[in-house]
Write a protein that binds this DNA or RNA. Structure first.
Lengths: 154, 154
DNA sequence: TTGCTTGCAAATGATTTGCACTGCT
DNA sequence: AGCAGTGCAAATCATTTGCAAGCAA
């Protein structure tokens, strides 16, 4: 099945990247990758621990640091108390975030390829004019999520 | 002079917004606004304190919180240790950020009005499809700043 | 006087780290 | 055996908060 292959592929890629850096793909790390790939958007550490209750908090932090170092995980910081973690874009595809100003939830969204292209070329121009070497961009769209809108309506 | 009027205008606007919320525009707050308007990009708390040495750290944090509450200051969080603070966009104009991955410095940049419009309309479409109410967006362009590029060249 | 501001010192809380132990290889 | 990974408890450090004193209305 396509689904199973996708999951197998993901773990395979992660395994390879870790090996390439002389790191092991341990059960803990597998659990983290599983949890991250299972959710629609970025996840905070407490949420992650709910989905992998056998993991110690410190191990989760340590493994996330390793996975980030190797380019498997990306760490996001919004205003909220906790940082968010997600799989790197080259594993999941380029996307952006809807960030709820009230509850802090984060949801993935994508823009059209056409718009991304205009954006990239504008960024290239402007960055080069400043002597800046752009590597990637992120767009955060702040506002109210549907849940919070429903709540404020009563 | 235009410069003086601009500065006077800024303080006047800040004063008005504070009064509207029953807050005072104290000397400390004035110093903070001065420091923020003096620099080209967002500033961390330690940097801010260098420019206003008479301010106590806790007062700086407290006043920044008030100023943020009233919509005069925006607080940014990137990966770095410290948060960044800048004047709100309706005081300075809409802009985005070049964020250096090595040294953490942040520089302001603007995109063309045309591109901003395409972006806004794409965001509106996509957000509405999710029942999300967008308020504003931010674009962070990550990469290497000119200083760090020069350093790595030797 | 009454209440907002301030500075100092102490508290908070997410994240990091030291250390001893377990388990690959 | 030898070293990477783990859990626990303790440390770190930006930011927040309690409190007593200063200052404006």
């Amino acid at each position: 099945m396509a689904t199973m292959n996708a999951a197998a592929d993901l773990h395979h890629q992660v395994d390879e990247r870790l090996r390439a850096r002389d790191q092991r793909y341990t059960e803990s790390r597998r659990q983290i990758v599983e949890a991250l790939s299972a959710t629609a958007g970025p996840v905070t550490l407490p949420t992650l621990l709910e989905q992998a209750p056998s993991l110690a908090q410190s191990s989760a932090y340590r493994n996330l640091a390793v996975l980030e170092e190797v380019g498997i995980v990306r760490r996001l910081v919004h205003g909220a108390d906790h940082a968010f973690y997600e799989l790197a874009e080259d594993l999941t595809g380029h996307h952006h975030h809807l960030v709820c100003e009230r509850c802090g939830s984060v949801q993935d969204v994508t823009l059209s390829a056409r718009l991304e292209q205009s954006l990239d070329s504008a960024i290239d121009d402007l960055a080069k004019a400043q002597g800046f070497a752009p590597r990637h961009h992120t767009i955060d769209i702040h506002g109210l999520c549907s849940v919070c809108i429903a709540e404020s309506t009563h």
